[in-house]
Nucleic acid binder design. Sequence first.
DNA 1: ATTCTTCTGTAACTTTTGTTACTGAATTAG
DNA 2: CTAATTCAGTAACAAAAGTTACAGAAGAAT
Lengths: 210, 210
Amino acid sequence: MIKELKASYGDLFEAELIKEIVQVGTFKEVPAGFKLMDIGDYIRGMPLLVLGVIKVLREDKEGDELLLYYLEKGETCSMSMTCCMGQTKSEVRAIAETDAKLIMIPIRKMEEWTAKYKSWRNFVFESYHNRLNEMLLTIDSIAFDKMDERLLQYLKEKARVNNNDVIHNTHKEIAYELHSSRVVISRLLKKLENLGIIELHRNYIRIINI
Amino acid sequence: MIKELKASYGDLFEAELIKEIVQVGTFKEVPAGFKLMDIGDYIRGMPLLVLGVIKVLREDKEGDELLLYYLEKGETCSMSMTCCMGQTKSEVRAIAETDAKLIMIPIRKMEEWTAKYKSWRNFVFESYHNRLNEMLLTIDSIAFDKMDERLLQYLKEKARVNNNDVIHNTHKEIAYELHSSRVVISRLLKKLENLGIIELHRNYIRIINI
DNA sequence: ATTCTTCTGTAACTTTTGTTACTGAATTAG
DNA sequence: CTAATTCAGTAACAAAAGTTACAGAAGAAT
C-alpha cells in the first residue's frame, strides 16, 4: 500500500501525512465493472485512487445514465468529500472502468487533516477545482456539441483513459453512456467509419485516425 | 457593511471571523447587469454575496452563452475560490442579475482562514457542495429535458430569484441564456400561453399558474 | 448441429430543434 | 410627426435526433 500511495501521492503530500494515511486508510482492490457507489448511498469514506480509472455517472428519472467524467490515478471523488462531511447521500454513481486500487480514508480524518496539513488542503481544493472544470467540459459538450462530435470525444477520451485504441463496447453501451439511442449511435459510428476515423467490429471499435 | 454581513452570514461565522471580514473585506455595490467577472479574468478576490442575485454563465466557441446557475444571498462563487488559490483564470462569466451588494475578501486570507476557522472551512466546503449540485441539476436539465421543460424551469427559477412573477426579458434574451434560438423560444412560449401557464407581453412575461 | 440470443445495419418515419424569411405592432430616435 | 428600430408571431423548410421495425451475421447455449 505504501508503495502505491507514494507513487500516486508522494509528491503531493508531506511525509507525515503519508504516514497517517497508511495508518488509518484501508486498501481496496476492485475489478472493472465494480460499483463503488450508487445514487442515494451514504458515503462511508473518501477514496484516494492509486491505480485504474473510475467512471462517474448521473441518472435520469427513467433510470437511464449519462457519463459525467472519469477519475484517474491521483484523484479523488469530490462528491464524496462534501457528502461525507455533511452526511448527505451521493448524487452520482461510480463504477470502476478498469481494475482499480484505492485507499479509503475515514470521514473523521478529513476535517482534522484540513486544519492540520497544508498539502491536504491544497489537494482538496485542487480536487474541487478539477471536478468543477470537468463538469464544465461535460456541460459544454452536452449543450454546445452535436451528437457526432460528442461521440467522437467520447471515443477519444475512452481510448485515452484505457490507454488502448481498441474500445471494447457495444453500440448499445455507448448509447447508454451518452444518453442516446442505439440506432443513432450505430448511424453516427458508421459515418465515422466511412470517414476513415474508426473501424467497426462486433463488440469492439478500433480508433484509426484521431 | 457589518449589518448586511451579519444578516447574511451571522449564523454561519463565529464572531471573530466576522470581525476579521469587516477588517479586511471591501464593500462593493453594483447595479443589475454589471459584469463582475469575465471568462479569462484573473480573480482578484473572493466575493461574499450579501444582497441580490448573480447569474453565472458559460460561453461556447461562437461566443454564445448558457446560464449555469444563480448565486443568492449568503453564497459565494466557488469558481473564484479555487481560481484565486491556484491563480488560474475564470472559466465563467458572472453578471449581477439584480442590484447586488458584496464583500470582497483578499485572496491571502482564504488559506489562512481555512486553517484557522472551522466555520470558514464548513462554509467553503458547503459552497463547493452546493455548486457541484447546482451543476448536476444544470446537466440534468440540458441532457435529460426537452426545451419546453427547460424553458418552464427557467421561467420558474427566474421568477423565484427575482421574487417576482413578472419576468422582464425579451424572447431573444431568454433564447440566449438557454442557448437556443429566438424563434424556438417564441414558439414554445406561445404554447405555454395557450396552456394558460403564462401571459405574454412585449418585453415581459407574467407567470400565471406555476 | 440446431436453436436462441445478441449485435449491427438499415429503412422509414416522427419529433424536436434550428433557420430563413416575412409581417405588423410597439417603441424609440430624429 | 415621421422614420427607424426592436419585438413578437408565424409559415415553410432543413437538420438532428429519436423510434419502430426488420434482417442477417456472429456467437452462445443446448
